[in-house]
Each structure stands twice: as C-alpha cells, then as structure tokens.
Write a protein that binds this DNA or RNA. Structure first.
Lengths: 218, 218
DNA sequence: AGGCTAGTGACAGCCACTGACAGTTGACAA
DNA sequence: TTGTCAACTGTCAGTGGCTGTCACTAGCCT
C-alpha cells in the first residue's frame, strides 16, 4: 500500500498527491466528455462517476461545470499574463502585447501539457467558442484579464490607469482583435498553431488601416 | 392567418393586449426586484407571484432570468443598430459608429421608455455590470451585436466581411472602447446621460494616442 | 351559440449546486 | 506501533432554474 512513487511534484505528502490526481482526473474526464457529447448534454454526475467519486466531491474541486470547462484556458491566460510582464521595459505597449501572444502560442503548450494533453485543450477551446454559456463565461473572464493587463501596461509606462485612458484603450483594442482571430480560427478548418499565428499577425496589421478615414482608396 | 403588426399601438385583439400587459408586468416586476434585492437573491417564483401568474407562465414569456434582466438592453441595442444603418453613406466607418452611439444616448430613452421607465433601465444596466452572471451574458450578446454591425459596415463600404478584416477590426476596436466607458460610467458617481456622453467622446479620442508608438512624449 | 385553439395553471421531473453531518484516512507525535 | 487530530469524502436533504405534459379556461371566428 506504500507507493513510494515520486513522479510529479518534488515531495508532497501522499494526501496532496492524491488530491492532485483526483483533480486532474476530474478535469480530464470532464473535458473528454464535454468535447465528445457536448457541454450541456454532460451531467456532473457523469463526470463524477467516470472518476468514481461522489458528485459532492466534484464540487469540492471545481466551483461548477463552467470552471472545469475553462480551466485550461485559465492556465493559458496566466501564461500570457506572465509573458507580458517579462517583456523588456523599452518595448512600446502594443509591441509588448503583440510579442507576448505570438510567443505565447509556442510556450503555452508546455504549460498546458503538464495538466492535460494539448490536443484536448484545443478541442476545449473550440467547445467554448461554440457553446453560448461557455463563451459568455469566457468573455467575462477575458474582460477581467484585460483589466489586469491594462494595469501592468500602465505600470510599465509609469501611468495611473484611472487617470490616463490609454492603457485600457490599447488593451481593449488588442483584446478585440484577439477575440476576432480566436473565433475565426475556431470556425475555420485549420486548427494548427501556425494558423492562429498567421491570423493574429494579419489582423493586428489591419488595426491601422481599419482606423483610417477612408477605406476606398485602392 | 393575418400578420398583425404587434409590438406597437394599432388595436390588436384583446388576447394580444392581455399578453402584452403580462409581458410588461413581468419585465417591470423582475427589474424592480432585481435592482432592489439583487439578481441572485430574486427567484422566478417571486417575480411570477408579484404579477400573479404561475412560474410556468413566466417561462413562456422569457427564456429565463437572464433574458428578462437583459431585455431593455436589447431594446437599446436594436436602437443603436438602426442608428448605424441610418447614417449617411458618405460617412467614414468610425464616424458612423461614433455618431450612432452619441445620437443613441439621446434617442434610446424614447425607445426604452415605451416599455419601462428609463430610470429603471439605467439601474438595470448597473445591475448587469455588477452581477457576474449577467455581465457574462451581456458580453456574449455584445459580441453577436458586433458581428452584425461589422456586416452592416462592410455592406456600406461594399466589402466582404470574410475577405477584408477591416470591418470586424474597426467594430471590435470601437466595441472595446464602449465596454470601458460603460464600465467606468456604471462604477462612477455620475450616472447621467451627459456623463456617459463625455466619457465616450473622451475615450474615443484616445484611440489614436493609445496606438502610438511612444507614449512618453509630453 | 358553439367549435377551435392560444394561453394558462398544476404537477412531475431533471439537473446544477449547497449545507449539514457522519465516516474514513493520511499526518504526526508519543 | 498506536492514538489523536484534521483533512477528505460520501450520503442525504433541500433549493432553485428550467422543461414536458395535460387538462382546462377564455378569446376568436363562423
């Protein structure tokens, strides 16, 4: 009964490791069920049963169905936020954001993979985009993330978010473009990383032109 | 079969008028309860009881609690969409959006007032901004609205939304700014129409500066 | 007046989620 | 090793949003 296994985290007690395993099992089972039979058609009981714990236990690990479904997104978002923080101080705000995402598309994989197969995370994203309830929750979280990023940007530039509108505006513009590309990517046929990278750069390059006075000059 | 013009004035049958009255009573009761005791702390049964109908009937008029709470927002959004459509064809895209909102802040009042006191609508908006579940639903609907507006803009300019990124980008940028101002307005102290107008113009004027390469040149 | 049917209430049931309580099991000291 | 404590968990009961069904009432139409 004494599994001297160490494997994952350095040295946590058996209890801790057990919890970790349960959490991951629930997460994986949930995403698997959601992406195969659909979010609404999957009940919490099913998820709990798949992991062989009580429904009550599920709710001790996750606040609700939504939270599980958006969990890996949270990992990716945290990764992105870090990437923004680690950008060199002399870079211009928009450049920071641009590079943080593009770099993110590569490194996020590792961060996610430690919890769930990357492919499952991708499927989960498409699920979110195509499930109204999840998209709503996702957008709300994105709004919160934008506020945080705006504060980071403001700090970089030595500004007060409440006094100078530019940080929030810049982030909002950027976030808006990201929403578009995310949606198009999930709706499109090519769900590869390079595909989203190209879409992102292409659309970011259109911000200037889109704000131009006259569009009909070609 | 007759296609009666419902919604507005023309004498409809008694049955029709009765329905209209029930719907409005439910809407008003719901908003009143939501804004006084909070969204989550208000049950559908309470709303139904306040209007003296069964809970089942409530669900025949509204898809759920969310829908009632966001109803007047829907009216305002429809009004805004119309305003965009009615802008003179020579106006530049961003100018169209800018003028449509600013004009909207004045005319939306009338459209809303025909269903619910304007003041109640305002309170409802603040409720939405401060209630996570409602904010989520609101943001999702906003995303849908943005897509529609992008199509309208594209058509104005004789473009294909899927071929040219600019319509969606322009609308996303604009929508992003509107989100900021909406939030700040609801969080602020002055909940008047002029206040939101000023905020809107001030922030829209910051889009250019926010996208500039260097911010520290003052 | 009488048939037709939209609209309603009453009832049953599903599912997400929560509080309460008791049983089980790692952690840790004796 | 053993006993105590605290963390986890399962069970049970209950609330609230939401849906299907069905019988019944009340406008509508001829």
């Amino acid at each position: 009964m004494e599994t001297t296994a160490d494997e994952t985290s350095p040295r946590a007690g058996l209890r801790e490791r057990k919890k970790q395993r349960t959490r991951e099992a629930l997460l994986r089972a949930a995403l698997e069920l959601f992406t195969t039979q659909g979010y609404e058609r999957t009940t919490v009981d099913e998820i709990a049963e798949a992991v062989d714990v009580s429904q009550r236990t599920f709710f001790r690990y996750f606040a609700g169905k939504e939270e599980v479904a958006l969990f890996t997104q949270g990992v990716a978002e945290a990764r992105f936020l870090d990437a923004v923080r680690e950008r060199p101080p002399q870079e211009a705000p928009l450049e920071v954001l641009r590079r943080a995402v593009l770099e993110g598309w590569d490194t996020i994989g590792e961060a996610v993979e430690s919890v769930v197969p990357l492919e499952l995370h991708m499927r989960a994203y498409q699920l979110i985009e195509s499930t109204p309830a999840l998209l709503a929750a996702y957008l709300r979280r994105s709004a919160e993330l934008e506020e945080e990023i705006a504060r980071v940007i403001a700090e970089r530039e030595g500004l007060d978010v409440d006094a100078d509108p530019r940080p929030r505006v810049a982030v909002a513009v950027f976030g808006g473009v990201m929403r578009i590309t995310g949606r198009l990517w999930s709706e499109g046929a090519d769900h590869s990383i390079p595909a989203i990278r190209e879409l992102t750069t292409a659309y970011l390059d259109q911000v200037g032109p889109a704000l131009a006075e006259k569009w009909r000059t070609e």
